[in-house]
Simulated assay, not measured.
Amino acid sequence: MHAQSIKNSQTLSIRSKLSQAYQAHAYRFAVISRFFAAIVGGYTFTAVFTALLSIILPLKKSDAVLLSISLTILVYSCVFIWVFAVKSLPKIWITILLTTSGCALILSLLKGWL
């Protein structure tokens, strides 16, 4: 009976250690995924949004480009902060992918690429 309880306690100890290791790796993956979403996803969204904004603004072409490039810093910073403010990781990726795709579609329709 005593040997059985020692075996059970060792099994529980191993399971708890595995659970803690899994949780640590899951947390690290979530943080790395957020950084990747903020850096790469934010950059891609900002680039497409800036190109779209420079076409949509009702200014001279040079003024529209300068203004949209100036707003790039603000947009990228907001996306970076937003990625770490939202709790749901899938929501972050879906939102970035959908908004970037939507802006790219509108941009391609306005430029006559489609």
Score class of each variant (00 low, 15 high):
residue 1 M to E: 10
residue 1 M to D: 12
residue 3 A to T: 02
residue 3 A to G: 03
residue 4 Q to L: 12
residue 5 S to P: 01
residue 5 S to K: 13
residue 6 I to W: 11
residue 6 I to P: 05
residue 6 I to M: 10
residue 6 I to D: 12
residue 6 I to V: 15
residue 7 K to F: 07
residue 7 K to Q: 10
residue 9 S to V: 08
residue 10 Q to M: 12
residue 11 T to D: 13
residue 11 T to E: 15
residue 12 L to S: 10
residue 12 L to H: 04
residue 12 L to V: 05
residue 12 L to I: 08
residue 12 L to E: 11
residue 12 L to P: 01
residue 12 L to N: 11
residue 13 S to P: 01
residue 14 I to E: 04
residue 15 R to W: 11
residue 15 R to D: 14
residue 15 R to M: 14
residue 16 S to E: 05
residue 16 S to H: 03
residue 16 S to T: 04
residue 16 S to W: 02
residue 17 K to R: 11
residue 18 L to E: 12
residue 18 L to M: 12
residue 18 L to P: 01
residue 21 A to H: 05
residue 22 Y to W: 10
residue 23 Q to I: 04
residue 25 H to Q: 04
residue 25 H to P: 00
residue 26 A to V: 07
residue 26 A to K: 13
residue 27 Y to S: 12
residue 28 R to S: 15
residue 29 F to A: 13
residue 29 F to M: 08
residue 30 A to C: 15
residue 31 V to N: 08
residue 31 V to W: 09
residue 32 I to G: 06
residue 33 S to R: 01
residue 34 R to D: 02
residue 34 R to G: 06
residue 34 R to E: 04
residue 35 F to I: 10
residue 37 A to V: 03
residue 37 A to S: 13
residue 38 A to H: 02
residue 39 I to M: 10
residue 40 V to P: 03
residue 40 V to D: 05
residue 42 G to K: 08
residue 42 G to H: 08
residue 43 Y to W: 03
residue 44 T to F: 14
residue 45 F to A: 04
residue 46 T to K: 03
residue 46 T to V: 07
residue 47 A to W: 14
residue 48 V to H: 08
residue 49 F to L: 10
residue 50 T to I: 06
residue 54 S to W: 04
residue 55 I to T: 04
residue 55 I to S: 00
residue 56 I to R: 15
residue 56 I to L: 15
residue 57 L to R: 01
residue 57 L to C: 02
residue 58 P to V: 08
residue 59 L to N: 09
residue 59 L to H: 09
residue 59 L to R: 07
residue 60 K to H: 11
residue 62 S to D: 06
residue 62 S to P: 00
residue 63 D to L: 15
residue 64 A to I: 09
residue 65 V to T: 14
residue 65 V to S: 13
residue 66 L to E: 10
residue 66 L to S: 12
residue 67 L to Y: 05
residue 67 L to N: 01
residue 68 S to V: 06
residue 68 S to Y: 08
residue 70 S to K: 05
residue 70 S to N: 05
residue 70 S to H: 02
residue 72 T to E: 09
residue 73 I to T: 05
residue 73 I to Y: 06
residue 73 I to H: 03
residue 74 L to P: 03
residue 74 L to C: 07
residue 75 V to H: 01
residue 75 V to D: 00
residue 77 S to W: 11
residue 77 S to Y: 15
residue 77 S to T: 14
residue 79 V to S: 03
residue 80 F to T: 07
residue 83 V to P: 00
residue 83 V to L: 04
residue 84 F to Y: 09
residue 85 A to N: 07
residue 85 A to P: 00
residue 86 V to K: 13
residue 87 K to Q: 12
residue 87 K to N: 14
residue 88 S to M: 06
residue 88 S to C: 08
residue 88 S to E: 04
residue 89 L to A: 09
residue 91 K to A: 12
residue 92 I to C: 00
residue 93 W to K: 01
residue 95 T to F: 13
residue 95 T to G: 04
residue 95 T to R: 09
residue 96 I to Y: 02
residue 96 I to V: 10
residue 96 I to M: 06
residue 97 L to G: 12
residue 98 L to E: 03
residue 98 L to M: 13
residue 99 T to V: 15
residue 99 T to G: 02
residue 101 S to A: 15
residue 101 S to H: 05
residue 103 C to H: 14
residue 104 A to V: 11
residue 105 L to Y: 03
residue 107 L to W: 12
residue 109 L to Y: 12
residue 110 L to Y: 06
residue 112 G to L: 07
residue 113 W to D: 07
residue 114 L to A: 11
